[in-house]
Every structure is written in structure tokens, then in C-alpha cells.
Design a protein around this nucleic acid. Structure first.
Length: 815
DNA sequence: GTAGGGTTAG
């Protein structure tokens, strides 16, 4: 692994060339030109150093500075990031010297520095000054300060003003500012689009702005439609248009269209501009077809100019393609080329490190991020937390998490890790969110929080986040609504998920896939398949993930013919090549139905070599149908492919245990011990009154343990009278039957049910979560418990949901 | 003299 030994330290600094540049710049200026024009050309060419030098010269020569000159100086300091200087010039001006331009330049300066309150109060002062009336420039500048949730209502007032004074028709820039106000201020793309339609004199910039915002707010399909209308209206797309539409292509995986745009751009002579080129790299990488990383690389290699974004795009491409070594190599190449990485670069490179067993590199990256001062930025912090958590360094992960600037983002799997290791309510990740000032809470934040809530299954947190989403005006956001569907599904409330889905104005393939996979996991296959038909009727094109949901819906209830129909159709009708996961669904379906020989035949007929997932799936079926001959074969295959997979050992040992082959069970345990493999401990949890209670096997640590076990005894007595017979097959110890029965009643899911019964009342359904699959005996017992208590019990296990009511389960005992 | 549009991550 040669690239692993590459040092990540930053290269030595470049020689300072500013002086010679400066001299060259000053020599090109014509000495006879007016000081005014000189200053203007400095601003236009962004040569701020020269502009500031001129300012000094003006002061030294005691030249009388008139309003136009002072206004330009305000602009100079505004654009060079020194608002204090701009303000002091403005304040030093005699009030009689301040004209509309001075006021507007100052409003704009505050807006540039995100000092929205100051910007708007200056605007109000301008309104109060009787001599002036705001013009299109003042409106644009002040509206820019209303493009955030805090000042959105002020923006509406300014909007009214604009309509009354007729500036919307008079000036395109005012229209652009209004579009951004609606998009950024209240996530209201509908109103933004209405403004867009109202602009009578649209130009390329207006079209670009609307298209870009649609892409950025994940209305990708709409963006592409708008792109076509733009072309139909006779506007030629420029590099701005193409880079935005290309990122839409990347998201929707429209490779063919992306290629068209590529040749369009080349033909129209824009070459491989940094923006256009970076977007192309990203597009080729994300359009999952084979060889796409190579295509991305080809574009990257041909780019005449590259910046940190282009480098990040190509690094991300390699990470996504699973080529972590190459990605890290490119990162090194980049920093040795004096390109300074940014947050996004770190996010991608850290992901590459997290996927590699070697740990030193990640640590080096961490120190680089600290040096560059970005370790507390969310996407970097998330990458660090994830990397440390994955390698089991929970303390380092926690430290990185603690310093995050906005403690509102957390990776889903990290949340689960924490959940599994520690469910201390003091460690509540959701409360941390409120510590921040609330700035920077965006759609992605809510999405992350919702998926964290979904992972843990904490519906009350999910509902709280939902309420905040509505309050903060994100109610129509597509991504958030998709996350809500998924959250409610994963928390076991399919009805609420459907409500969100039905109320959505816009739905994309992810919305449909989320709701379908929700119903599939809950075992409501008919509903899932109905929705799939509706989706096709609505003209939404399914993707590979949709088919995983459809096939697993069939698999969860054993609809073999239906599954074959869809499996054939996905390639034939929708051009989706089945992946390993799709084959795994079919193997699962055949295997669970007891068609083990057919499943083997199917595996052998696959166009590629079966991976561990396929064999593990098949091994699971062998266990259900007590077929140790096939089971041994399958376990061997899994261990060939993944020698350190504890799941295969466990499944095989379960299989032996069920047949009473205790010597074989012992042999497996021994070899697991030798390899230092441990079985993940089973645990169940339940949320009662906003608090999560977690139980392990035979857990007696809960304060109400005595009451819980009393309840368990009572339940055992009642359900035995109803005909429940303990199924001791799933007890993996070679002990007496009576003892086995005792072990059974210490299973975490039964303890959680008993706790739920003493802590909650009818008619609230009981929602239990388990990190592994629910055991067969617990499943039976809970069905009886639902009869004797009249309660509805929903169990989410590692694989699916069980809705148990009146002695019946939505899985039809088929899981 | 004052104003508007792009790419990369999660």
C-alpha cells in the first residue's frame, strides 16, 4: 500500500509574489486618469490592495473627496471585507454629502457581511430621510438581507413596497432578489416561481437563478423542465446554466442527458471552465454506470485550470467508487500542488479513511483540519465522529462531537452506535441541537435529526422535530418530507407516514420509495404494491432502490409469482440492471418459502459471483427450515468471503443447536473465541414518556425490575392457560427443558413488553425495538400477550416490523 | 458611484 505512507503534512509556503504583481499593476495605470476612474478600475478588477493604496494617496495629497469618490471608497472596503472602514467613511461624511448611492452602498455593505439587522435598519433610516426615495439598487440590497428566516417578514413588507412602486417590472435584479428572499427566507419555491413568472423582462441570469435554486432545493426534475423552457424561449445556456443543470443530472443519474450537456458546452466553446468541469466530474461520478469514475477522471485530467472544488469532486468520485487509496493519493497530490483543502474535501477524504483499516491517516487528517481551523465545522466534524466511531474510538468521537459548532448534525450510524452502547438520557443528542443559536439550521439539519430519530426509533423526538419543521417554514420541503415518511415508518407509525406522504405537494422517486418500503417492512405487502402501481401511473420512474422495496414487500409475505413478475420487469421495462441486493431479495423469498434447491439454482445462475450477503441470506433460510446440509455449505461460503463475520458463525451454531448437535455448537463457539469474534448482545428498548428504557437479556438493573418480573410471571401463567407452549428450540444451551424455559423468559423483548404493560395504558400501541431479529418464541409469546392484554404491540427488529394484534402478526409468521 | 446567477459533502 504505497500511498498510505504518503505524508499529509502541508507543503512549504509559496514565495510572496504580491509585490511584483503590485508594481506591474500600478505601472499599467495611466497617470493622467481621474482618481475616480482609477479607484473604479481597482474595484472592478478586485485589486483591493491598490485601491487602498490610492485611498492613502488621496488622504496624503489632501485632495477634497467628493461624494462619488467617497461612495466608491465605501464600496472598496465593503468588497474587500472591511465593513468597519466602510462604515467609518460613511459616518465621517457630512449628512449633506450622503446621497442615495452612499446609503445604498452602506446597506449593501452590511448585507455583504451578513449583518442583516444593520443593513435593514440603514434601509429604514433611508426611508425616513425625506430627501430620498429608494431605487432599484436600494431594494435589491435590502432584499438580500431579508433572505433568511429571521427577516423574512420584513422582506414581505419590502415586497409590498416593490409591487406598489412598480420596481418588479422595471428591474430584473429586484426580481432576482425577491426570488432568493422566498427561497432562502422561507423555503417557498412556489412563491419564488410566481415572482419569476411575473418578471416581464427575463434574462439569462434570471433563468439561471431560478434553475439553480430548484436544483439546490432538490426540485431537480422541475429544474430540468425549466431548463427546457429556457431553451425554448430562445435563451442560450451559459456556463452557469450548464453547471447547475449538470448537478441536477448527477442527482437524477441522467447520464445520457449529462453527456449531451457536455458536448453542448464543448461545442459552444466554453472549454472546461473550472465550474463546468467540476460539475462534469461530479456528474460522471454520480451517474452510477460502469466505468464512470474513469470518465470523471478523463474530464478532470483535461481541465486546464483546477481549484479546490474540482479536486474535491474527483476525490469524492473515487471515494464513492470504493477506491479509497486512490482518493487519498489525490488528496496528497492536491496539497502538494498548493491547493488548500476545504470542508468538503475533508468530508470526502475522511470518509475514505473511515473505510480503511489503517488508522494513522485519519489522525493526520484530523490534525490538518485543526490547523486549517475547520475541525469544528459540521461536515468535517461529522466525518471525524464517524471515522473514530467506526474504529471503536468512542471517546475521540465524543470529543470531536463536543466541539462541533452547531451540534445538530449527527450521522445516523453513529447515533445508533451511541444508542447501543449508552442510552443515558443525559447524553441526549437531540437536546444538544438547541444549544446553538439556531443559525444554520437548514433542511439538511432536519433531515439528519429525523434520520437519527428514525434509527433509534424515538417517535416522540421525531414528532417534536416534525413540529419544529412546520414552525420554521420547512413544511413543503421535499427532502424533509421524505425524511419524515421514513422516520414515521421506522418508528412504527405507518399511518402517520402515509399522512405526510398524502399531504405532500411534490413527490419524487424517493418519496414513493420511502412510503413503499415503509409498508413493505411493516408486512403490508398489498398496500406497498398498490402504491407501486400508483407510482407508475403517476409517471414516476422507479429506481433500483424502489425495486428493493417492491421485492422485499413480496419477500416478507411470500408472494413468489408477484416477485418474479417485478424482477423480470425492472430490466425489461425500466432499464434497471438488478444488483446484488435484488438477487438477495429473490434468494430470501425462495429460501423462506422453503424452496432451498431453487434458491441454490438461482444463486448459481446469477451473472456475477454471489457475495457474502447472498449466502448469509440463504443461510438464514436454511436455519428456518432446519436444513443443515445446505446451511453448512452456505456458512462456508460466507466465511470464505468474510472470515471475520460473526453472523455466519452464529447462524450456523443456531442451526446446530436446533438439531441438538451440541458438540458442533461448542466447536463453533471455540473457533469464534480463537478469532476474538463476539456476538452482538441482544437488547430491546422502548420509549415511555420521552425516555428510552433499554433492556438486555436477564436484565435486573431497571429500578422497576421487581415489578417487571412479577408481571412476566403473571403473563406466563395467563398465556400458558391459553395454550402457549414455550419453544425451546431457540435456546442455545445444552440444558434441561425447565431451565431453557427460564432462559426464554429472560429475553429482552419479553422484559420490554412487561415493562410497557406496567407503564402505559390502552389504547396506546406498545412499540418495542430490538437490535437483532426477534426470536421465534418471543414472537409467539407476544401474540398470546396481545390477546390476554388486548394491547396492540409493534415490534421493530433488525429486519422488519411486526404489528401484533388479537393474536395475529402482520408478518403472518413469515419472516 | 450603488444590485443579481455556478461547482464539491452530509
Amino acid at each position: 500500500m504505497p500511498s498510505l505512507s504518503l505524508s499529509l503534512s502541508l507543503p512549504p509556503p509559496l514565495n510572496n509574489t504580491n509585490n511584483s504583481e503590485f508594481r506591474r499593476a500600478i505601472s499599467t495605470l495611466h497617470p493622467a486618469r481621474e482618481p475616480h476612474d482609477l479607484l473604479k478600475s481597482c474595484i472592478r478588477s478586485r485589486n483591493f490592495a491598490l485601491g487602498k493604496l490610492l485611498h492613502r494617496k488621496f488622504t496624503e495629497s489632501q485632495l477634497t473627496l467628493d461624494s462619488p469618490l467617497l461612495n466608491s471608497l465605501i464600496t472598496l472596503y465593503s468588497k474587500s471585507g472591511q465593513w468597519q472602514q466602510a462604515l467609518s467613511i460613511f459616518q465621517s461624511m457630512d449628512p449633506s454629502m450622503r446621497d442615495l448611492v452612499s446609503w445604498t452602498a452602506m446597506i449593501s455593505c452590511f448585507a455583504n457581511h451578513r449583518m442583516h439587522r444593520q443593513s435593514l435598519s440603514t434601509f429604514i433610516q433611508l426611508l425616513r430621510a425625506t430627501d430620498f426615495y429608494p431605487n432599484e439598487f436600494s431594494f435589491t440590497a435590502s432584499l438580500r438581507s431579508c433572505s433568511n428566516a429571521e427577516f423574512f417578514s420584513t422582506g414581505l413588507a419590502v415586497f409590498g413596497f416593490v409591487l406598489k412602486t412598480g420596481y418588479l417590472d422595471a428591474d430584473v435584479c429586484v426580481g432576482c432578489a425577491l426570488i432568493d428572499m422566498f427561497v432562502k427566507g422561507s423555503d417557498d419555491l412556489g412563491s419564488a416561481f410566481k415572482v419569476f413568472e411575473k418578471i416581464s423582462e427575463r434574462n439569462v441570469v434570471t433563468w439561471n437563478l431560478m434553475i439553480t435554486r430548484l436544483v439546490q432545493f432538490s426540485h431537480t426534475g422541475d429544474a430540468i423542465h425549466l431548463f427546457f423552457s429556457m431553451v425554448e424561449s430562445g435563451f442560450g445556456p451559459d456556463r452557469f446554466t450548464l453547471s447547475s443543470v449538470l448537478s441536477a443530472c448527477a442527482e437524477l443519474e441522467l447520464l445520457a442527458f449529462g453527456k449531451q450537456l457536455h458536448s453542448w458546452g464543448v461545442k459552444s466553446g466554453m472549454g472546461l471552465d473550472v465550474f463546468f468541469g467540476s460539475s462534469l466530474v461530479d456528474m460522471y461520478a454520480k451517474c452510477g454506470a460502469d466505468g464512470s469514475v474513469e470518465d470523471a477522471r478523463k474530464v478532470f485530467d483535461r481541465m486546464p485550470e483546477r481549484n479546490v472544488v474540482s479536486w474535491t469532486a474527483i476525490i469524492a468520485a473515487y471515494v464513492q467508487g470504493g477506491l479509497e487509496q486512490e482518493a487519498i493519493g489525490l488528496f496528497c497530490e492536491m496539497i502538494w500542488g498548493y491547493v488548500v483543502p476545504n470542508c468538503f474535501t475533508f468530508a470526502s477524504t475522511l470518509k475514505a479513511c473511515a473505510n480503511l483499516p489503517e488508522f494513522g491517516l485519519g489522525k493526520q487528517l484530523h490534525s490538518q483540519a485543526i490547523k486549517l481551523g475547520v475541525s469544528a465545522v459540521n461536515c468535517v466534524g461529522n466525518g471525524l465522529v464517524n471515522m473514530y466511531a467506526r474504529s471503536g474510538r468512542m471517546e475521540c468521537a465524543r470529543k470531536c462531537f463536543d466541539i462541533l459548532l452547531e451540534k445538530n448534525l449527527i450521522l445516523c450510524d453513529t447515533a445508533v452506535d451511541w444508542n447501543a452502547k449508552n442510552l443515558d438520557p443525559k447524553d441526549d443528542i437531540f437536546n444538544l441541537e438547541t444549544e446553538g443559536t439556531g443559525n444554520g439550521v437548514n433542511a439538511f439539519t432536519y433531515g439528519s435529526l429525523l434520520s437519527a430519530a428514525a434509527c433509534i426509533g424515538t417517535i416522540s423526538k421525531g414528532e417534536q422535530i416534525h413540529a419544529r419543521v412546520l414552525k420554521s417554514g420547512f413544511g413543503n420541503n421535499l427532502c424533509i418530507n421524505n425524511a419524515l415518511i421514513s422516520m414515521y415508518s421506522k418508528c412504527g407509525n405507518e399511518a402517520a407516514a402515509l399522512r405526510v406522504f398524502s399531504d405532500m405537494k411534490d413527490r419524487n422517486v424517493i418519496s414513493w420509495t420511502s412510503i413503499i418500503s415503509g409498508f413493505a417492512k411493516h408486512g403490508f405487502a398489498t398496500k406497498a404494491l398498490e402504491l407501486f402501481c400508483e407510482m407508475l401511473e403517476a409517471g414516476v420512474k422507479p429506481n433500483g432502490v424502489t425495486y428493493i422495496a417492491v421485492l422485499s414487500a413480496c419477500s416478507h409475505v411470500g408472494l413468489i409469482d408477484e416477485a418474479w413478475k417485478h424482477f423480470a420487469s425492472m430490466h425489461r421495462d425500466h432499464d434497471i440492471v438488478p444488483r446484488m441486493e435484488h438477487y438477495a431479495c429473490m434468494v430470501d423469498l425462495l429460501g423462506r418459502s422453503g424452496l432451498l434447491s431453487e434458491a441454490i439454482e438461482f444463486i448459481n445462475s446469477m451473472p456475477f459471483r454471489a457475495d457474502a450477503l447472498i449466502w448469509r441470506t440463504f443461510l438464514g433460510s436454511c436455519r428456518i427450515h432446519h436444513n443443515s446440509k445446505f446451511g453448512e455449505q452456505a456458512a462456508k461460503k460466507v466465511l470464505e468471503l468474510e472470515p471475520h463475520d460473526p453472523a455466519a458463525y452464529i447462524l450456523l451454531s443456531n442451526l446446530y443447536a436446533a438439531e441438538g448437535r451440541w458438540d458442533d455448537v461448542a466447536a463453533i463457539r471455540k473457533s469464534m473465541k480463537l478469532r476474538k469474534l463476539t456476538k452482538e448482545a441482544g437488547c430491546s428498548w422502548i420509549e415511555v414518556e420521552n425516555q428510552v428504557h433499554k433492556f438486555h437479556v436477564g436484565d435486573t438493573s431497571h429500578p422497576k425490575a421487581q415489578k417487571i418480573y412479577d408481571k412476566l410471571d403473571e403473563l406466563t401463567f395467563k398465556i400458558k392457560n391459553l395454550g402457549y407452549v414455550p419453544n425451546t428450540d431457540s435456546v442455545l444451551h445444552d440444558v434441561e427443558e425447565e431451565l431453557k424455559e427460564q432462559f426464554l423468559f429472560q429475553h429482552s423483548e419479553k422484559i420490554a413488553v412487561a415493562f410497557a404493560l406496567i407503564s402505559t395504558r390502552k389504547p396506546k400501541p406498545i412499540r418495542i425495538f430490538k437490535n437483532l431479529r426477534v426470536c421465534g418464541d418471543c414472537h409467539t409469546a407476544i401474540k398470546y400477550i396481545s390477546v390476554v392484554t388486548g394491547r396492540e404491540i409493534v415490534v421493530r427488529d433488525a429486519n422488519r416490523f411486526h404489528h401484533i394484534k388479537d393474536g395475529k402478526c402482520s408478518c403472518n409468521d413469515y419472516w
